[in-house]
Write a protein that binds this DNA or RNA. Structure first.
Lengths: 155, 155
DNA sequence: GCTGAAAGGAGAATGAG
DNA sequence: CTCATTCTCCTTTCAGC
């Protein structure tokens, strides 16, 4: 799985992180190679799972999602069943667009998207807190997103 | 900018959020239309800025990014200059992959990616705190990412 | 390993009905 | 929206460095 990447690979990834539809011609130029080896390198990284896929980036505002928030969640207890149940909740609810378990006083941090603050509040109350799995939650509304889903650094 | 989306548009977006390289044929099937109108609808959504672009999704682990964290940041003061300076910092530093200003006691929440915890600590110390723009910061390491950059809900 | 070239086919993009 | 057409570009293969 862990494959070695040289500078040319990094250049290819840098382009593809910005433009997933870049043509082999563009990619070849950026990498300083011709098209065939470019194609092979990309295929190799796709097959290795390093490139997980290609997706369209959408504008949440354009979709009518005017309320975004980060929500800290502390579970009511830490039995396996509770954790699994919460995992299913996260997987099921499309308004939860990101979830990670973290260090610190909370168990999870969620990123939640909703139509408006009211919709978000309803979702948290009825969709999350009412399940009885959450002891505590803390909501931080996003006022302005200054950097969004930017490319990963290639260190 | 705010254009009206019908069910067919939603189906197209649902597909494109999962597979940005979906062919017009697949898209047409999913939307229940033929290819030309599909293409037109997608073009319309691209031109409106609703579809911001197409990108490759990479696996951070595969890139050697083994330390991810959310970091709360409170600025030393709230003069325009300080805020602008912090904005430039965020824009410049590729390890900061996400940044939002939020409600609550902190000013910003960052998502930071680094090679390992040590690299992350070095970056925070030298790259962020040493700038003198930050009064307080709180780092929450990500233990496990259970939902990552998932599609936006189409409500 | 890389290059360049070239062939075939797939699919994007456009215009007319 | 459908149909038909054009044309770009992907993808693979070849020979050669």
């Amino acid at each position: 799985m862990s494959l070695t990447l040289d500078d040319a690979d990094h250049r290819l990834l840098a382009v593809l992180q910005n433009n997933g539809k870049a043509s082999l011609q563009e990619l070849a130029e950026a990498a300083g190679l011709s098209q065939s080896p470019c194609w092979r390198r990309i295929k190799r990284m796709e097959d290795a799972g390093l490139i997980r896929g290609y997706v369209a980036r959408l504008d949440p505002k354009g979709l009518g999602l005017h309320a975004l928030a980060y929500v800290f969640v502390t579970l009511i207890d830490h039995r396996e069943e509770t954790i699994a149940g919460f995992g299913r909740l996260v997987a099921r609810e499309e308004r939860i667009v990101e979830c990670a378990s973290i260090t610190g006083s909370a168990d999870f941090i969620l990123k939640v998207a909703a139509k408006d603050p009211e919709d978000l509040e309803t979702f948290l109350m009825k969709g999350v807190l009412a399940t009885g799995m959450v002891r505590e939650s803390q909501t931080h509304f996003i006022l302005r997103q200054t950097k969004t889903r930017s490319p990963w650094p290639l260190l």
